[in-house]
Simulated assay, not measured.
Amino acid sequence: MAPTTTVAEQLTVEQLRDDVEQLARRCLCDPVTELFGPLLEAQERVFAKLETDPRPEHSEQLHLLAALVSAALARANHDLGRGHQAMTLARMAFECADNIGHHPLRAWIRGLQSQLAYWADRPQEAAAFADCGVALAGEHTGSVASWLACAQARALARLGAAEPARLALVRAEDLRERHERDELDAIGGLFVFPPPRQHYYAADVYGCLDGMGERSVHEATRALALYAASPPELRSFADEAGARCVLALAQVRAGQPGAARDTLRPVLALDLPRRVTEVMGGVNRVAAALRDPRVAADPDARDLREQVEWFGQRPASALAS
């Protein structure tokens, strides 16, 4: 009987891993409203197994799954505008990864915390989290390393540190060239940092720096071209929308609100469950630029401003209230 029990318990752990990895992949493309319940259920199952399974050979695997699912759930809360809950879950994920000394995942979670702080308009905190992640990653060359360098660059650009931000992007490009696929890349979905997203981050960085509008347009256009060439299951709707928002912002600043309207059309067509925190944040930045006196009177600018203001009244977070 004992061997049968052991096999059954091993199958349970394997099933949990399959479920968690599947959810991580779905996080790119599926609306958060379809993911939230399954993520909560998966987290409950993993922690229940941790409490009831004393076998040492399962402990490391279960702590890894607990970190992964808690991180994914943190991202889902972030998408719904629940910043405090998201950061709490990210800390929980970090503790689980720390318990097994999983340095790449610990570094990845610091990147997640940097992302949460960045979209909460706390760039100093975002930079600090990214710095911690870089230190944890060390010489690791999975895609998380490029993500952390890009996270540093975005936070530094928001703080007005132009040259350090540029150097961080150069470091991200170097890390991309030396990239070696790791366990997180193999999981994919939420836990991989692909080239299109790296170009989107670069566009965002240059969009924050004076005199770099053309470079921002170039990077955003490159990101969108790469997303368009990607298979549907690898196209993050939030990051693709983010790249469109950065491009539209550059177009508005260049006095081209008509072009910005065309760029934003797919974003403004997103259904309510996909109007997540980062999408709304990007659209709101365009809305602020449209109020600039240099373009505010333009008919195209007025038309687009009306569209984005209407869009901004109905975020995904309204579904969680």
Rank of each mutant, 00 (worst) to 15 (best):
F311K: 02
A301E: 14
A74C: 15
C29D: 03
R106I: 14
D271I: 00
T263A: 06
T88W: 14
A301M: 14
L64S: 15
Y200E: 03
S216L: 04
Y200G: 00
T52C: 11
R154H: 06
L169A: 07
R17L: 01
D300F: 12
V279I: 01
N99W: 06
V295T: 12
A172R: 05
R110I: 01
A76D: 09
A297W: 12
R253F: 07
P273G: 01
G258I: 07
L50D: 08
L68W: 05
R178S: 06
A243N: 10
S70W: 12
T4R: 04
F94N: 10
R285D: 15
L39I: 03
G101H: 12
A229E: 02
D121H: 09
H84E: 15
R314A: 02
L226Y: 00
E57P: 01
E44D: 15
A127N: 09
F311R: 08
L116M: 12
R45F: 03
C132S: 13
G133H: 11
D131R: 13
L184Q: 06
A165N: 08
D182S: 06
E125M: 08
A97I: 08
P293C: 13
T52L: 10
N284A: 15
R285Q: 13
R285M: 05
G242F: 12
P231F: 05
H102A: 12
R45H: 08
L209I: 15
L159M: 14
G133L: 05
P231K: 07
A259C: 09
R110N: 13
Y201D: 14
G189D: 01
L116T: 02
E9A: 11
R55C: 00
R45C: 05
D300I: 03
L209Q: 06
G312E: 04
V144P: 09
Q85E: 15
P38N: 05
F191S: 05
A8L: 14
A269Q: 03
A202Q: 03
T33K: 03
L136H: 07
V283K: 02
A107E: 11
H103R: 15
R261G: 10
A165T: 07
L73T: 14
Q251N: 05
G142M: 03
S146C: 10
A67H: 09
T5R: 06
